[in-house]
Design a protein around this nucleic acid. Structure first.
Length: 670
RNA sequence: GCGCUCAUAGCUCAGUUGGAUAGAGCAACUGCCUUCUAAGCAGUAGGUCGUAGGUUCGAGUCCUACUGGGCGCACCA
């Protein structure tokens, strides 16, 4: 609601400044003042005009004079929504909205308007966990961040395709294969016969393989041989690798499904090579002059991409350049990634072979993009060919991601360069463990480690909190609460509620931190059900559901409060008026709810989901205060009851929208 | 060595592209359940925004230097 209004004010100010002062303002800041006495929207543009006027003409005019002129000119253009405009402080222009009219209009308006900016399909890649062990909470942060980003983009009207890249040919898979084949002497049939949680079995095995290598480094030769067999796609080891990768991917998809996360395409790295994506990309990189063949020095025999000399410098220990093709002629990960990204933007005349890999309960299918044609079904739409890509990958990959982008940019035809320019690496910090969490997991720590603020997770050491384990613990804990609060419900209903509570808790916990904040995972904090948590958000909506239920039971139902209030506009205006020095609490709540689309737009623009999480909590908090002060069921005045209910409806609508974008589903009771 | 990033209340973190009186949760303390769910609400206390300069009407936010963390710079993926 406020998004469009803010844009209107922005353009009105820009036009007024141009007309009266002959200045073009590139950006006009319109913000939300710290308190209600200063209006609903405000702009410090007069300060900017004063500065620019002085620079352009030498004329000195006080910001306050300019603000007065702006306010006078602005008002006629905005009378529809704005009640009055005041100049405050040294030169702020403050707009006050017509409260009653705005509230009623908002009740009939959708929570958000469509405002796509990419102009076509955006490809979001996230999760991309090595398919060799159970997913841990670090992978969960990636997936939840990515999934929420997808939901944000879809909410603002973007078309999004979700990719989960499967690195089925890397050392990580090879290590588990070595474990099965050489440590345990298992055949493919033996591994296929393993029952139970396969990802947990591999988690333990992977850690043991690490120790096994450390005990005798000559065993690393087995890894190299296995890797080679996988890359050539030959023999029993390759077949075992394929089985491990596919089965683990299935585990990962099931884990993520618990959190409401789905994928459209699972492109496999093996196919990037076998379907000649790379050889095409290689030729194009050479033709574009983006890579050069080294004939001397320690990179002799390699194809390398030069670093940007302005931002990176080489020294004795490090080459700033990035090798894409090793001296033995094989391509590394970054090279393959460039090929994959060319495909994402439709810049390769090649495609994967698709087969339906995973069915979701709602009928959606995740398609595996592999090297060989198999199966009878084909996808309903074409994949790839996006106008932009967004990669949710941890910040440690920034260096490599920068080379991927430069590689794609070098090959892209001029008309498509803007596609590459708007594409981005959505970087986030990792999840580490607090020392106390490590101890709780049963790991022994040195005294030095004990004093550290956090300890990195390590799949190779088997040190980490598995995603499924955390969810299990949360569900168990929530179930105990639900059983205490809702003893009358069936076991199945209680479990369904406990599941929703657990999902809300994890998703909110991993989303409330800004992307660049390292999370030191602590069980106590992550399992908290009080304060700034996903549980609190659910509780607010449960209370709203409770209000509606009780009103229905009392025969006081009111499905369309706006229709009732339309006949009592002066009364509504009175209820929304500030009382002397005190700002009006109803209006404060309403105007916060109306900011939803502004917050969503900000999240979509900055690719920062945490702002929505923070906003949802703020709105829920404001509602809780309202809830404690006003009892709707016991309100005898019918019109006032409709008024209070209108506020509840507004909050409910925006809170539901926010939670939907956060991937959190609220139960009726809890 | 170079690059990126962070430093805000006892702890964990927000802080609207430079704006008006720096906020929240946890922990501590004080109240509130015959009431639409107390998984809650109201209140108290807690700050030289790492240090020193600079830019300007205005700096937690931008620039420089310094101090102290974290990450990256592999013929790994």
């Amino acid at each position: 609601m406020l998004y469009l209004l803010r844009e209107n004010i922005r353009s009105a100010i820009r036009a007024t400044v141009e007309r009266r002062f002959g200045l073009m303002l590139p950006e006009v800041a319109v913000e939300f003042p710290p308190h209600a006495a200063l209006g609903d929207l405000a702009t410090p543009a007069a300060f900017e005009v004063s500065k620019r006027l002085k620079a352009a003409t030498g004329e000195k005019r006080s910001p306050r004079d300019i603000a007065l002129a702006l306010a006078a000119d602005l008002h006629p253009e905005l009378t529809k929504n704005v009640d009055r405009i005041e100049v405050a402080g040294a030169g702020y222009v403050n707009c006050f909205l017509r409260r009653a009219e705005t509230l009623l209009a908002a009740l009939d308006a959708p929570a958000v308007v469509s405002m796509p900016r990419f102009g076509g399909k955006v490809i979001v890649e996230h999760t991309s966990v090595n398919p060799n062990k159970a997913a841990h909470i670090g992978h969960l942060r990636n997936a939840i961040l990515g999934d929420t980003l997808v939901r944000i983009l879809r909410a603002v009207g973007e078309t999004v395709e979700v990719h989960n890249y499967i690195d089925d040919t890397g050392v990580q898979v090879a290590d588990v294969v070595v474990g099965f084949a050489y440590m345990e002497g298992k055949s493919l049939a033996d591994v296929e016969a393993i029952t139970g949680k396969f990802d947990d079995v591999c988690w333990d095995l992977y850690a043991r393989v690490g120790a096994w290598y450390a005990a005798d480094e000559s065993r690393l030769q087995l890894r190299a041989e296995t890797l080679h067999a996988i890359e050539r796609h030959e023999g029993a080891l390759a077949a075992l690798a394929e089985h491990v990768a596919e089965r683990i991917v299935t585990c990962h998809l099931a884990t993520m499904q618990r959190l409401g996360i789905q994928y459209d395409v699972l492109p496999c790295e093996s196919a990037v090579l076998r379907l000649n994506f790379w050889s095409d990309a290689f030729e194009r990189l050479k033709a574009a002059g983006a890579i050069t063949y080294e004939t001397e020095g320690r990179q002799a025999g390699c194809w390398v991409m030069r670093a940007d000399p302005e931002t990176t410098a080489a020294d004795d220990e490090h080459d700033a350049d990035k090798i894409l093709v090793r001296s033995n002629g094989t391509v590394n990960y970054t090279g393959k990634d460039i090929a994959y990204h060319l495909w994402k933007l439709g810049l390769l005349d090649r495609d994967f072979h698709y087969r339906a890999f995973y069915r979701y309960p709602d009928g959606h299918t995740a398609w595996m993009g592999g090297a060989v044609a198999s199966g009878t079904e084909s996808p309903p739409t074409s994949f790839g060919q996006g106008v932009a890509y967004l990669n949710v990958i941890d910040v440690g990959q920034s260096y490599a991601q920068a080379f991927v982008k430069r590689g794609v940019l070098a090959v892209a035809p001029p008309a498509r360069r803007s596609s590459v320019a708007v594409s981005a690496h959505v970087a986030y910090e990792k999840v580490a463990l607090t020392p106390s969490s490590c101890l709780e997991l049963g790991f022994t720590l040195s005294d030095e480690d004990r004093r550290r603020p956090f300890i990195s997770m390590s799949g190779r050491k088997g040190l980490g909190v598995k995603a499924n384990d955390l969810l299990d613990r949360l569900e168990k804990r929530a179930l105990a609460q639900v059983q205490a609060h809702q003893p009358a419900l069936s076991k199945a209903e209680q479990q369904s509620i406990a599941h929703k509570v657990a999902v809300a808790a994890v998703r909110y916990f991993l989303l409330k931190f800004a992307r660049t904040t390292l999370i030191a995972f602590d069980f106590t904090e992550a399992m908290a059900e009080q304060g700034e948590t996903g549980v609190y958000l659910l509780y607010s909506l449960v209370r709203i559901a409770g209000i509606r239920r009780k009103l229905r039971e009392a025969g006081l139902e009111c499905s369309a409060p706006a229709a009732v209030l339309r006949d009592y506009l002066p009364q509504v205006a009175e209820w929304l008026r500030d009382d002397g020095q005190n700002p009006n609490e109803f209006w404060a709540l309403a105007v916060l709810a109306l900011r939803y689309d502004v917050v969503l737009a900000e999240a979509a623009e900055t690719l920062e989901p945490s702002v929505i999480a923070k906003y949802a909590f703020q709105l829920a908090q404001a509602f809780s205060a309202f809830y404690n002060r006003h009892n709707i069921r016991h309100e005898s005045d019918e019109v006032r009851r409709a008024f209070l209910l209108a506020l509840v409806s507004l909050v409910e609508s925006r809170l539901l929208a926010a939670l939907n974008v956060l991937g959190i589903d609220a139960p009726e009771r809890m």
